[in-house]
Amino acid sequence: MLEYKSPKYFPSSEELLDSDETPVDNELQDLIPGLLKAILAMAWTERMDWFFGVDMGIYYDPDQPAIVPDGFLSLGVERIFDEGLRLSYAIWEEERVPIMILEVVSQTYRGEYTKKKQEYSDLGVLYYVIYNPQRRRKPQLEVHRLVDGEYILQPGNPVWLPEVGLSIGAERGTYLGITREWLYWYDELGQRFLTPEERAKVAEQRAQRLAEQLRAMGVDPDSVV
């Protein structure tokens, strides 16, 4: 585990850089964590004790640069600070290490299987998720669990995360008009949570069925408030 220093002054998250200014070289590095965050916001709409960061700096030592994963999930923290929202994630301020970190591998490797894996292990992140859409002979999705200071690859797809109360997995679907393999959240029965687009489509279909039923009863659906 990393040892946190105790300087006389801890900068607030507002004073720290929100990212490392490194541009993503693959659109999926934004879209995949963004989709996971959007699904979680609808699945946990009543909960205010979680935060999902996308391309946001995680600070563990005020004297060290931030670690900036593609996405991360923290539990037991404030969902929203104020209208300004979070600018960065300082562990000494949040008092929580993220429970899960996600890296989406692009054509340019950035130490996802080596350097970053060690960093997250040292930080004490329980789950490290790597998604590599370029892989052909090995699994594209890897979910690692921290056991005695080492990451152990977990079997299956989706993979159940008991401390989170959800599973994470990969399957083909359509998001923002793009049909390909995406990462999703699943419940304890393995049922996939719908995306915002899918939820809107289901709601529209229900409204259409209701309108048809009203017309069959001789009622103009436009007259029903």
Rank of each mutant, 00 (worst) to 15 (best):
Leu126Val: 12
Tyr59Ser: 03
Glu46Met: 05
Ser74Phe: 02
Ile39Trp: 00
Glu142Asn: 09
Val54Tyr: 02
Asp148Trp: 05
Met100Glu: 05
Glu94Asn: 08
Ile80Arg: 15
Lys116Gly: 05
Leu35Trp: 01
Asp61Trp: 01
Glu46Arg: 13
Gly84Asn: 14
Ala38Gly: 01
Leu28Cys: 01
Arg110Pro: 00
Pro33Gly: 08
Asp25Glu: 14
Asp63Ala: 13
Arg136Met: 11
Ile32Glu: 09
Val97Met: 00
His144Phe: 15
Leu31Tyr: 13
Pro158Lys: 03
Ser88Tyr: 01
Glu142Ile: 00
Ile101Val: 15
Thr108Leu: 12
Arg86Met: 04
Val143Arg: 06
Val77Asn: 03
Leu126Ile: 14
Leu40Trp: 14
Phe81Ile: 11
Pro98Gln: 03
Ala41Arg: 13
Tyr120Val: 11
Trp44Ser: 02
Lys138His: 12
Lys138Thr: 13
Ile101Ser: 12
Arg145Asp: 03
Pro98Ser: 04
Glu78Arg: 15
Asn26Cys: 04
Glu119Pro: 00
Asn157Tyr: 06
Thr22Ala: 14
Pro139Trp: 06
Ser74Tyr: 01
Tyr109Ala: 14
Gly156Leu: 02
Gln107Asn: 12
Lys117Pro: 01
Ser106Asn: 10
Glu150Arg: 14
Gln29Val: 05
Leu141Pro: 03
Ile39Pro: 00
Tyr109Gly: 09
